[in-house]
Simulated scan of single mutants.
Amino acid sequence: MALKATPNDQRRLLTLQEADTLIVRLQGKLRSLPQTQRIEELDTELSALDRTVLERLGAHDDATAEVARIESDVQVVRARLQRNRDRLPTITDAKTATATEHENETLERRQGDLEDLELEAMQQQEDAATALAEARREAETARAERDRLAAERELVAADLEQQLEAARGERGERAAQVPADLLALYDRQRERYGIGATLLQRRTSVASGVELTAAELHEIRQAADEDVLLDPNSSAILVRTDESGI
């Protein structure tokens, strides 16, 4: 037996469909907030930037350790050289004095070489510190942008959630005005085909945008006003009004 409903109840489906369309649109906006794509890009960038920071921190630590090692070697050579210099005036044996002088010359050359190495190591340490600071600045800048966008997205999402809650409330009120059997058919068609009801406007289904054929229009004209019809193109409930042109 074909479902029947008053024309007024059928027209209520159009306002219900408006509410459902709004809900779908709001849900789509929530899923595709403009900030989300950039946040995902920044997450990828931050992962790489944080790795760079760790790598450069390791290079800086290595350079700092190398400076410390060379400084320690320099101190050892300086201390040995100073002891020899302090001791040399007290040495009475000529052979020992000569050997000590030769050792001092070797120590002086070694000290010079180490001090040159120390300068190079200190430059490498400075370069590593500069590179580390640059990597940290880039990471901090990216993280600040991400935090800003996340906060912005949260505000936008909260507003959309509020609109969605209101739309769902409105949908519930409109659905309550539709007879249960008609509502069940509407919900079934909407779940299957994406839309539950559509207006027949000037012989065209608004949902599909397709003008009905002469044969289809003839069949519709033969139906009673209380007959619930389905759009042959979209499978949604076809609601007839004064705009239908039939």
Rank of each mutant, 00 (worst) to 15 (best):
E40L: 12
E41V: 09
E41A: 10
E41D: 10
E41N: 06
E41C: 04
E41S: 10
L42H: 03
D43V: 06
T44C: 10
E45W: 06
L46C: 04
L46M: 06
L46N: 09
L46A: 05
L46S: 06
S47Q: 15
A48D: 10
L49F: 02
L49D: 04
D50M: 09
D50A: 14
R51T: 15
R51W: 09
R51D: 15
R51L: 15
R51S: 15
V53T: 03
E55Q: 14
R56G: 12
R56V: 06
L57Q: 11
A59R: 13
A59L: 12
A59C: 07
H60I: 10
H60W: 08
H60N: 14
D62H: 12
D62V: 06
D62G: 09
T64V: 06
T64Q: 09
E66V: 00
E66F: 00
A68D: 14
R69D: 12
R69Q: 12
R69N: 11
I70Q: 05
E71M: 02
S72E: 06
S72Y: 00
D73G: 00
D73I: 00
D73H: 05
D73Y: 00
D73W: 01
V74P: 08
V74M: 10
Q75I: 05
Q75E: 13
Q75Y: 07
V76K: 00
V76F: 03
V76S: 00
V76D: 01
V77W: 01
V77R: 02
R78P: 01
R78Y: 04
A79P: 00
A79K: 00
R80F: 01
L81P: 01
L81S: 04
L81R: 02
L81N: 02
Q82H: 10
R83S: 11
R83E: 13
R83M: 06
R83C: 01
N84S: 11
N84T: 00
R85E: 02
D86Y: 00
D86H: 03
R87D: 09
L88G: 03
P89S: 05
T90Y: 08
T90A: 11
I91L: 06
T92E: 15
T92F: 04
D93P: 05
D93Q: 14
A94N: 09
A94Y: 03
K95Y: 11
T96I: 15
A97M: 03
T98K: 09
